[in-house]
């Protein structure tokens, strides 16, 4: 019957219950390689600047003198090019997403890498601008 072709789907929906992912209650679905956001381990970064050069959005900037690594979260497109390009594995792509903010954020990290001695890890994380 041509009319009410949708009946089957409707009945199935009623029978199966909602397909909704109850997001705030249930954490967001992410895959193993989901590109959430980029983090840096300031302890291993050697200020080579490759990430900054590879970044297609000029989101990353690095000041070698001041030992500051900056990422403009409002520019980053999470392509992961910087992570792939980092020769020292300082950058990682986290699966988690960044929360929304009420202000433009530029995150600054002070690079703590000092020669091959034991580097002290700085627990800087997101939300620096909030």
């Amino acid at each position: 019957m041509g009319i009410f072709q949708m009946t089957k789907t409707v009945l199935r929906n009623l029978a199966r219950g909602p397909a909704t992912r109850q997001y705030p209650a249930v954490p967001a679905r992410t895959g193993p390689i989901t590109r959430g956001h980029v983090t840096i381990d300031p302890a291993t970064c050697r200020s080579c600047g490759l990430c900054s050069r590879r970044c297609p959005c000029v989101a990353i900037s690095i000041d070698k003198e001041a030992k500051v690594w900056e990422i403009d979260r409002m520019r980053c497109i999470a392509c992961g090019d910087c992570v792939e390009g980092c020769p020292f594995g300082s950058l990682t792509m986290e699966q988690a997403y960044l929360p929304p903010v009420v202000e433009h954020v530029v995150e600054r990290y002070t690079i703590t890498y000092v020669k091959p001695e034991r580097p002290a890890k700085k627990p800087a994380e997101e939300g620096a601008g909030a």
């Binding site: 967001a28 956001h37 409002m74 999470a78 997403y97 960044l98 929304p100 009420v102 202000e103 954020v105």
Partner: peptide
């Protein structure tokens, strides 16, 4: 501001 490219539904 919701960051992301593209921003995900959850965000």
């Amino acid at each position: 501001y919701v960051p992301g490219c593209a921003a995900r539904p959850e965000m």
